[in-house]
Each structure stands twice: as structure tokens, then as C-alpha cells.
């Protein structure tokens, strides 16, 4: 009954050649960049695998534009002048699409935690910041691709494929996607359970969307709503998107004044560059908080 196996039982066989050990380099910027890139690549692989997600995420913008937009247009025909409500809603729907997709990308880090993969990332000899930067750029890319699918529908709502407009919209969506993902990462650092994260997301996403001016113009709002809209960083992403679209559609000056009034701070018309700057600044601030939070956690 002596079935004790000796350690190194195969010692009788000729020892195979020892592997040449690898020497890992010290931490460096180059190493951090590699980490950012590979985290980003993984997001891309996962996104391309999930065809169902791509399709279901398209459903919501379609509903907004073609069902809500069509349904409400009979009510608003007088108010929107020669601009179709669906056309008006188009940039807002782009923003909403990016908002939801980016937030879902950030949630993936909670799934990663649930399935253990986050641990593989957090124990690596690399700055945690580079993992989060990779996640944020990944979320931005995925959200922009999703937004591009919606953008492809532009002619259906009377928006032409103007190359400059398309380029500007893509860049603005990328910026919005980055900031929303960074915001999502801040939440994901604290919320460890996927169910709570889903609930929290619903609670956060809808107010962000409704208070951004994505679905209504910023004209003649009651004071409280006007304040809320101006505090919401998403507003500063929606407005440049709408500016870019309105340049390329035929609209009377009355309609433009009603549907796309300038965004102002105490009477000062905020330039588009500053608006985008607000979104970038908010994104970087959220990313810094997320990095700080993940550095604290073990």
C-alpha cells in the first residue's frame, strides 16, 4: 500500500534542457504604453465578438429617432418650423447612444471583477493607471463605433454625409465616450456587485440624458432646469454635436434660433472649443479619481 510518489519521479529520464529565463525590464513608460494598448485591444476583441450587443444597442437610438421622433413630430410641427423633429433629435440621439455604450463598457470592469480577470490585471507589475487608461480609451472607441452606426443613418433623417461634419462628429463622440467611460470607472471602483452596478447605472444615465438637452432645445427653459442643464457635463458634448449638424442642414434662421440657441454662461456665448474642453476636463478628472480609487483598493 505504499503509493507514495517521490517528488521528481521522472528523475530517471534525461533532464530536458532548462528554459532560458526571461528578464522582465524595469517599469517604464514604454511598458505602460504596451499595457494600455493590450487592455484596449481586449476591449476591441470583446466588442467585435458581441454582435448581439451591437444590434441591441442600435435599437434604442432607432426608437428615439423613428418612433418617438415621428410620434411627437405631429405635436411639434408648428414649433420646429422647416426642420423635422427627427433631424433635430439626431445629434442628441448620437450623444445618447455614446452615453449608454460607454457606460456599459465601464461596467465590464465589474464583470471582470466578478469573473476574476480583474485580479490578473491588478497583480501585474504595471501601473494601475495604465489599465484604466486602456479601459477608458477602449470604452471611447467602442462607443464611437456604435455612434458611427447611428451616424450612418443620417440621410434617413435629412442630414447629409458631409465629410467635415462626419469627422467632427466622430471626434466629439470619441471625447464624450472617453469621459463617460471614465465616469463609469469611478462608479465601478466602488460598486463591487454587478446587480448594484446595473441599478446604479439606470439611476445615473437617465438624469444625465434628460438634463443634457439631447431631446429638447435649450431655449426658454425654466430657471431650475436651465441651471441643471448647464451643470451637466453631457450638455457640453451634446451642443457641439448639434452645432456640427445644423451647419449642414437647410434651416431657416427662426428654426435655428428656436432649436439650436447658443450655449451661454451669464450671457457669454461659450465657444465650441471651450465646450469640448469642459468634457475633456471632466473626463480627465473622473479618470484621476478612478485611478486613485483603484490604487487604494487591494
Amino acid at each position: 500500500m505504499t503509493t507514495v510518489s517521490e517528488p521528481g519521479a521522472a528523475a530517471g529520464a534525461p533532464a530536458p534542457a532548462r528554459a532560458t529565463p526571461i528578464h522582465l525590464p524595469e517599469q517604464s513608460l514604454r511598458h505602460d504604453v504596451r499595457a494600455v494598448k493590450v487592455v484596449w485591444q481586449r476591449e476591441m476583441i470583446r466588442f467585435s465578438q458581441d454582435k448581439v450587443r451591437i444590434l441591441t444597442s442600435l435599437l434604442q437610438p432607432l426608437l428615439y429617432m423613428f418612433v418617438l421622433g415621428t410620434g411627437l413630430s405631429s405635436l411639434t410641427r408648428g414649433a420646429t418650423g422647416d426642420v423635422n423633429l427627427r433631424t433635430f433629435m439626431f445629434p442628441g440621439v448620437l450623444a445618447v447612444s455614446v452615453l449608454f455604450t460607454a457606460m456599459f463598457s465601464a461596467v465590464s470592469i465589474v464583470w471582470d471583477r466578478e469573473f476574476g480577470f480583474l485580479r490578473e490585471m491588478l497583480v501585474a507589475p504595471v501601473r494601475r493607471g495604465s489599465i484604466l487608461v486602456g479601459k477608458a480609451i477602449g470604452g471611447a472607441t467602442v462607443a464611437t463605433i456604435q455612434g458611427a452606426f447611428v451616424l450612418a443613418l443620417a440621410p434617413l433623417v435629412g442630414v447629409p454625409y458631409a465629410p467635415v461634419m462626419v469627422l467632427v462628429l466622430l471626434v466629439e463622440m470619441l471625447v464624450l465616450g472617453f469621459s463617460v467611460t471614465a465616469f463609469g470607472l469611478v462608479l465601478a471602483a466602488r460598486v463591487k456587485q454587478i446587480q448594484s452596478m446595473m441599478g446604479l447605472m439606470q439611476m445615473v444615465l437617465l438624469p444625465l440624458m434628460f438634463l443634457s438637452g439631447a431631446l429638447y432645445p435649450l431655449a426658454n427653459l425654466p430657471a431650475w432646469l436651465n441651471v441643471a442643464v448647464h451643470v451637466n457635463p453631457i450638455t457640453y458634448a451634446v451642443h457641439p454635436l448639434r452645432d456640427a449638424v445644423f451647419v449642414h442642414i437647410d434651416a431657416s434662421s427662426q428654426a435655428v434660433a428656436a432649436l439650436n440657441p447658443p450655449l451661454t454662461w451669464w450671457g457669454w456665448v461659450v465657444p465650441a472649443v471651450v465646450q469640448v474642453g469642459v468634457v475633456v476636463a471632466a473626463g480627465l478628472a473622473f479618470l484621476a479619481i478612478a485611478i486613485w480609487e483603484f490604487n487604494r483598493a487591494d
Partner: peptide, 24 residues
């Protein structure tokens, strides 16, 4: 507990690790 990404291939999981650890 497993810390693999189940939706990646075996080789993709290892490549991810190699990049994250800075293997030359």
C-alpha cells in the same frame, strides 16, 4: 478561482499577460 478571460482564446490570454508583464 479562475482569473482567465473565458471569451478569449488560450493564446490571447497568454499574449495579454505577456504584454501586461512587459515580456520582451
Amino acid at each position: 478561482d479562475t482569473t482567465l478571460d473565458l471569451y478569449l482564446t488560450a493564446a490571447q490570454n497568454l499574449r495579454f499577460h505577456a504584454e501586461l508583464y512587459g515580456v520582451p
